[in-house]
Computed example of a mutant assay.
Amino acid sequence: MEVKQEAGKTLLHIRSHYNGLTKTEQKAAQYILEHAPEIIYQSVTELASKADVGETTVLRLCRKLKFQGFQDFKLSLAQDLVQPMDYLHTEVTEEDDPSALTNKIITAHIQTLEQTRELVNPEELGKAIDVLHHAKQIQFFGVGSSGLTAKQAAQSFLRIGKRGGASTDTHFQAVEAALLSDDSVAVGISISGSTKDTNENLLLAKKAGAKVIAITSNARSPITKIADIVLIMVARENPLSSSSLAAKISQLSIIDLLNVGVSLRMKDQALKFKELTAKATSDKLY
């Protein structure tokens, strides 16, 4: 039975196995050794591209090093490199008082939004707003933290009269994707762009005839090859800081851009639906 590699010894483990690797595996291993702090923020696609090897080479290297896969490898590497406080925020220290903590965290969120603003392609955004405006059904797909964003997105579009939804169960997601049609839009939300369940369900949606919009932080990830329209947001996460609020704020800013853009196209109709949904819940408040 294989013994799983002990966390925190990743780089030493790579060096100790180096001479027993194939030439292409050595190429990938050398890139990892030279760029270790960057690797924890990359997808397998990005690493393979930068190391100039195939994705299968990277995955094979991970297995040779006794890791279950690339994510398992990145988690161990992050534990090698990241100090306990770093995954809360790179500039936060144990000496920070509440005032300093507030300034650092909120400044980081503002920077994330500013960087996302710079990355949003107006042409792609316009295309996304157009297809969402004409869609009879909008289905959002995401798992984990991105699944929560998908639920919020579905709610925001429902309030302006756009039917659709976002299931948390990946099997139900597959069913919903398969039942879409050419007057539907599937929106996939994935920070890495390499989430298997999300990408497979988007492929089902595309096969059913739906237009596919991807919201991701990785412009060279598998999800971008599936999507008809790609919107890039900023999320610098390592395995120890996944589900960060900064990333979620970035995702939600894209959702808000789309929602407001569609609302402006719908004009009076969107306002009518907003009033109806507001009245429907008004008696729930004291």
Rank of each mutant, 00 (worst) to 15 (best):
V3K: 15
Q5Y: 10
Q5W: 08
L11W: 01
H13D: 05
G20F: 11
T22Q: 02
K23S: 13
Q26L: 09
Q30T: 13
Q42M: 14
V44E: 07
K50S: 11
D52K: 15
E55P: 07
V58H: 03
L59H: 11
R63V: 12
K64W: 11
K66C: 12
F67C: 02
G69M: 09
Q79I: 08
Q83F: 03
M85W: 03
L88P: 05
H89A: 14
T90E: 11
E94S: 11
E95M: 01
K104D: 07
A108G: 06
I110T: 08
P122Y: 13
P122S: 11
L125C: 01
G126T: 14
K136F: 07
Q139D: 10
S146G: 07
K151G: 00
Q152L: 14
Q152V: 15
A154Q: 05
A154K: 06
Q155F: 13
S156L: 12
K162L: 10
T168M: 14
H171F: 08
Q173A: 08
V175E: 10
V175N: 09
E176Y: 10
D182Y: 10
V185P: 01
A186R: 01
S190M: 09
G193N: 02
T198Q: 05
N199Q: 02
L202V: 01
L202R: 01
L203D: 01
A205P: 00
A205T: 00
A208N: 01
G209M: 08
R220H: 13
P222E: 02
I223Q: 02
I226T: 02
A227S: 02
I232L: 15
V234W: 11
N238Q: 10
L240E: 04
S241F: 02
S242C: 10
S253I: 09
L257Q: 03
V262C: 01
D268I: 06
Q269K: 15
A270R: 04
K272M: 07
K272A: 10
E275R: 14
T277V: 05
T281G: 06
D283Y: 12
L285S: 12
Y286H: 14
Y286L: 13
